[in-house]
Simulated scan of single mutants.
Amino acid sequence: MTMGRNTYEAWIPEEDSSEVIQRVDQMSAVESLASPEPMSSNTKSIPRSAGVGVSVVDKGGAYSEDTSTNDDIVLTAKKLGKAIRIAEEDIDDSLANILTTKQKDWATSYAKLLDNATLAVSAAVGTGVPFESVYYTLTQANAGLGYTANDNITVAGSAGPSYDDLSAVLGKAEGGDYFDLSRMVVIAHPSFRATLRAVKDLQGQPIFVQGQQGDRGTPDTLFDLPVRWSLGCRISATATDAPSGKPILVVANADFLRLGRRSGPESIFIDGRDGLSALTDESILKMRARRAFALGHPKAAAVLVGI
């Protein structure tokens, strides 16, 4: 979206075909793969079913009743945004559209921050931590869901992820009731690419196959599962667009990556010729998105921690 030199009275949402939305979808695995949940308020409760059992019913016999317990997941929208000061001279003198450039730069950082916050943050919700990430969720015990802390986390050895490590982490996700081959995805930090290219099975065949790029391309695959790469997949104590901890590889049923969408990405431009900013000849571009996230069930995902 190209923004003119006007003061807007309301936030302007990005159109689906805008360069900002295209950049976010390209850079954020969670934004493009997770199961979307439209939100019309700050919070939304969505059901988490424990499943329904089936048993044999003899002719003329009584149906047994299902005893599975159900609960819900509460999605709470958090604001992810930034204000950008731009000198009036840069707007007037620049041959390129500096506002469009800043919007695309924000989209790149937003994509990394969102993936980091939803997949790799190691702490509970609090200051700087908007959601319970997949990694954090898998480190916590949940007796009600029958999950033991760290059960679905595999830590690579000092030499880096091996064939056994990669097979083990996929096995964690494949061994539960939440495996669905048509919906399973791998999301990993790009630093895993070099390791994966060198790993082969007992027949000497690569387990990682690079896809064909382009409009009609095919994704990279690991053990035949599609792989998306994310720069946000590094462990960090708080959500950041520049994580520096150990890289992780996430295997998950995408239906259980629940992404609440309250609003945005959207922007507002405050002209430097109005208001307090008029004293400095600077305009302000603010950009934000309001998102919520939860992992639907800890057994629907597994994580491999790299080196």
Results as ranks from 00 to 15, higher is better:
Thr2Ser: 04
Met3Ile: 13
Thr7Ile: 12
Glu9Asn: 06
Ala10Met: 08
Ile12Asp: 01
Pro13Glu: 12
Glu15Ser: 12
Ser18Tyr: 09
Gln22Trp: 09
Val24Asp: 02
Asp25Arg: 12
Gln26Asn: 04
Met27Leu: 04
Ser28Leu: 01
Ala29Ile: 02
Pro36Asn: 07
Glu37Tyr: 09
Thr43Ser: 15
Lys44Met: 13
Lys44His: 11
Pro47Thr: 09
Pro47Tyr: 07
Ala50Asp: 14
Gly51Tyr: 10
Val52Pro: 03
Ser55Phe: 11
Val57Gly: 08
Asp58Gln: 05
Gly60Asp: 03
Ala62Gly: 03
Ser64Cys: 00
Asp71Val: 02
Ile73Gly: 00
Lys78Met: 13
Lys79Thr: 13
Ile84Pro: 10
Glu88Cys: 06
Glu89Pro: 06
Asp90Phe: 14
Thr101Pro: 07
Thr101His: 14
Asp105Gln: 15
Asp115Trp: 00
Leu119Asp: 03
Leu119Asn: 02
Ala123Met: 06
Thr127Glu: 12
Gly128Arg: 04
Val129Lys: 01
Thr137Glu: 07
Gln140Met: 01
Ala141Met: 10
Asn142Lys: 02
Asp151Tyr: 07
Asn152Tyr: 10
Thr154Val: 14
Ser158Arg: 09
Ser162Lys: 15
Tyr163Met: 05
Asp164Ala: 15
Leu166Glu: 00
Leu166Ala: 00
Ser167Glu: 06
Val169Asp: 00
Leu170Phe: 07
Glu174Phe: 03
Asp180Ser: 11
Arg183Ser: 14
Arg183Ala: 13
Val185Arg: 15
Ile187Asp: 03
Ala188Glu: 00
Ala188Trp: 01
Thr195Cys: 07
Arg197Met: 11
Ala198Thr: 11
Ala198Pro: 00
Gln203Met: 12
Pro206Ala: 12
Ile207Lys: 03
Gly214Glu: 03
Asp215Pro: 02
Arg216Cys: 04
Thr221Met: 00
Phe223Ser: 05
Ser230Trp: 03
Arg234Pro: 05
Ile235Lys: 15
Ala237Thr: 06
Lys246Pro: 11
Lys246Thr: 12
Lys246Tyr: 14
Ile248Lys: 01
Val250Asn: 05
Ala254Arg: 15
Leu257Phe: 07
Leu257Gly: 04
Gly260Asn: 11
Phe269Asn: 10
Arg273Leu: 15
Asp274Asn: 13
Ser283Gly: 11
Met287Leu: 14
Arg290Glu: 00
Arg291Val: 09
Ala294Arg: 07
Ala294Val: 02
Leu295Arg: 03
Lys299Tyr: 03
Ala300Ile: 06
Ala301Lys: 06
Ala301Leu: 07
Ala302Leu: 06
